[in-house]
């Protein structure tokens, strides 16, 4: 493995930024913004899954509640859009603290199920609390203003919201590459050892959880304003599932893979609006092909090729007992363990 110059890394970022800047001129701007925020959502999920080894199946709670909070703030409070986004994100954080506190004590599939359980409760509250949330009809026609500027054009709003989303992306990057992020990875790989080394693992995991939830909340808030709509569907378990799918499709543990996953899923969904007869067949087919053919996810496979210089390196298949993941793939979520 030869060391690459740092300039290459920055070239990569520059390219990504250029892509983000020209995106609304290539595809429909509303769709472009959706890709940016769903990508952020998937990055939030990967932050937890790839770097803490925790699969959350309840992130829709943060995405949805932030969307509603931002929508209500903008509609009833008449606040400008960055303030609404901030309020939405804060609500997600406030919810994440108790939910995270209770959930991080479990691992693997149990963690996934506890987060799902809390998300279903949030879903229930949003549906029932009609006077505030509008129930299943949701909050429609959310206004978006900034210092009296007209942000009704989708393209204008894209550029107005992009910096906020980029803050989220940069934040995620900083977290992963900070000492804190490295401790998270250490905990993921061996929690007992990390604790023995003196790290308060629960506190680290909780902070990781809250950060992830805040990014999901940031994405959800912008999504609500971008769509001018907060809907019950945002808080449904299928939304959590969609974010997880984007993450896996992109590549778990790659951080940016979720963006690629978001591109695939959202373009597919958009394309299918005119081909309803293919709805499930196409979605299922694409997922199956990616899972079977590109096990590291799209970005994960690309990185793997790049690193090893050859197509998909053999994945060990030694039967069930020897089931160990290829170390270069994902951290194994350990469903067989029942937490502590």
């Amino acid at each position: 493995m030869s060391v690459r110059p740092v300039t290459v890394r920055y070239a990569g970022y520059a390219l990504a930024l250029i892509a983000a800047l020209i995106l609304p001129h290539i595809i429909y701007p509303v769709l472009a913004l959706n890709i940016i925020v769903w990508g952020l959502f998937a990055v939030a999920v990967d932050l937890l899954l790839g770097f803490s080894g925790l699969l959350s199946f309840g992130h829709a709670a943060f995405w949805g509640s932030a969307a509603y909070a931002a929508g209500i703030a903008a509609t009833r409070g008449g606040v400008s859009f960055p303030v609404a986004v901030l309020i939405g994100t804060l609500v997600a954080i406030l919810l994440a603290i108790p939910i995270g506190y209770l959930s991080i004590r479990r691992q693997g599939i149990y963690f996934a199920m506890v987060t799902l359980a809390f998300a279903q409760m949030i879903y229930f509250v949003i549906n029932q609390w009609r006077s505030v949330t509008g129930g299943e009809n949701g909050i429609q026609g959310i206004p978006r203003t900034l210092l009296g500027l007209d942000l009704s054009s989708a393209t204008t709003f894209y550029y107005a919201a992009l910096p906020l989303a980029l803050i989220g992306y940069v934040f995620a990057f900083r977290v992963v590459h900070s000492p804190f992020g490295h401790v998270l990875v250490a905990i993921r790989d061996n929690e007992t050892r990390a604790r023995a080394l003196g790290y308060p693992t629960h506190r680290y995991k909780l902070i990781g959880f809250v950060i992830s939830a805040s990014l999901a909340g940031l994405g959800g808030s912008i999504y609500a304003l971008g769509q001018r709509l907060a809907d019950l569907e945002y808080a449904r378990w299928t939304t959590s599932g969609l974010a997880v799918i984007m993450t896996i499709l992109g590549g778990v543990g790659t951080l940016w893979g979720g963006v690629i996953g978001a591109v695939v899923v959202l373009l597919l969904r958009d394309w299918l609006t005119t081909r309803p007869e293919l709805f499930g067949v196409a979605t299922g087919g694409v997922f199956a092909v990616i899972v079977l053919g590109f096990r590291r996810g799209i970005l994960g496979t690309a990185l793997h090729w790049y690193r090893s210089g050859r197509p998909d390196a053999p994945i060990r298949r030694r039967g069930l007992a020897a089931a160990r993941p290829d170390p270069t793939t994902v951290p194994r979520v350990k469903p067989e363990k029942g937490g502590r």
């Binding site: 599932g241 896996i248 778990v252 899972v291 096990r295 298949r317 020897a322 160990r324 951290p331």
Partner: peptide, 13 residues
Amino acid sequence: ALDPLYNFLLSFA
């Protein structure tokens, strides 16, 4: 041989 996540996604597909 892989993380159960993969079979979960496959079964979803």
